[in-house]
């Protein structure tokens, strides 16, 4: 237990350092970019004195180090400023859009994890032959499909050709007049296509990792030894192979989950969903600096938290890892 706490503290500080580097990189990028953020708020009719005041209110004339210190202080105190575009505090804007992304990401992640691993376990137990190969080919094909092609294909088939499911948005017009059950059903129907689009690539990634790891393990000496000693295959599989692939699976899932949490850009754009990706792209397009910093920070924190959690869980499961860390 003491070791786990020690590992946690150690990793926590190293991730904190990474976060600091990320924030500094954002600051440098923002300073390097051409274009004046204050220019939008100064019309040519404004007299020069007032324009100067507006410009001063952005603190653009201060020295770089002062700006950097103020920037860091604001981020640590949680004051991310006011969004230029929404005219509201950045934290409020983000908290409006974050719940959707988090819920959507978690549902999609659960789907990916369960379906991908079960598919892999199903295929591994199959006999060598055409069907097994067919699974591999299908996985490779889906893996090679860009997300937007999957989305377009699904929209073309299910919305345009057969007119079964809506092609975008989270709800259609007349949503407010429905009762609670109707609302839930409508949101469910609207989120089928985005969920499938979002989950298919992840399912394939989980499938490939699980299958490759299992097949790699089967070649190992200790498995061969167990087989030659006559241990039943089911026991080998449950007691020796599955525990051994868990660490790898956890590291894949942390990467997947962090990618999903930081916003599925193309899916949200294609289906016009109100998520983090939408405000990020809007902020970047409109040069809304406070919102850019806020969204990037949220995405970075998600990635770091996910990988921190992944490492802790891996440490708990695999005692060898602890020995490696503390050696």
């Amino acid at each position: 237990m003491k070791k786990i706490v020690c590992l946690f503290i150690r990793k926590f500080f190293s991730y904190l350092l990474t976060l600091f580097l990320l924030v500094s990189a954002i600051f440098i990028l923002l300073r390097l970019t051409p274009g004046d953020p204050a220019a939008k708020y100064i019309s040519p009719e404004l007299n020069s004195e007032l324009a100067g005041k507006v410009r001063d209110s952005f603190h653009l004339n201060d020295s770089v180090i002062t700006q950097y210190a103020a920037f860091l202080k604001n981020i640590i105190t949680g004051n991310l400023g006011v969004s230029y575009e929404y005219h509201r505090p950045v934290i409020n804007v983000i908290s409006d859009f974050l719940p959707f992304t988090v819920i959507f990401a978690l549902i999609s992640f659960t789907l990916q994890f369960i379906l991908g691993i079960n598919w892999a376990l199903f295929t591994v137990k199959m006999k060598k032959g055409v069907f097994k190969k067919l699974n591999d080919v299908a996985a490779l094909a889906v893996y090679s499909l860009p997300v937007f092609l999957i989305g377009i294909f699904l929209i073309y088939i299910f919305s345009l050709t057969f007119d079964l499911l809506p092609s975008g948005d989270l709800y259609s017009t007349g949503f407010d007049s429905k009762n609670l059950g109707g609302k839930i059903i409508e949101i469910c129907i609207h989120s089928i296509l985005p969920l499938v689009t979002l989950s298919l690539p992840g399912i394939v990634i989980f499938y490939r990792y699980t299958k490759e790891n299992i097949e790699g393990l089967r070649q190992k000496n200790f498995i061969c030894y167990l087989i030659s000693n006559g241990v039943p295959e089911k026991e080998i599989f449950n007691k020796h192979i599955l525990p051994n692939i868990l660490p790898q699976l956890i590291s894949v899932s942390t990467v997947e989950l962090s990618l999903l949490l930081s916003g599925a850009l193309i899916t949200e754009r294609l289906f016009n969903l109100p998520g983090m990706a939408r405000i990020t792209v809007l902020a970047i397009e409109q040069r809304d600096y406070p919102l850019i910093v806020g969204t990037t920070l949220v995405a970075g924190v998600f990635v770091l938290v996910c990988s921190l959690a992944g490492e802790i869980i891996r440490g708990l499961i695999d005692k060898r890892l602890m020995r490696e860390v503390f050696s």
Partner: peptide, 17 residues
């Protein structure tokens, strides 16, 4: 640090600027 940043966002960020 580069792994921690969501790459597609960084790409869009840099390209749009």
């Amino acid at each position: 640090m580069f792994l921690a940043a969501p790459s597609l966002f960084i790409i869009i960020f840099a390209i749009s600027f």
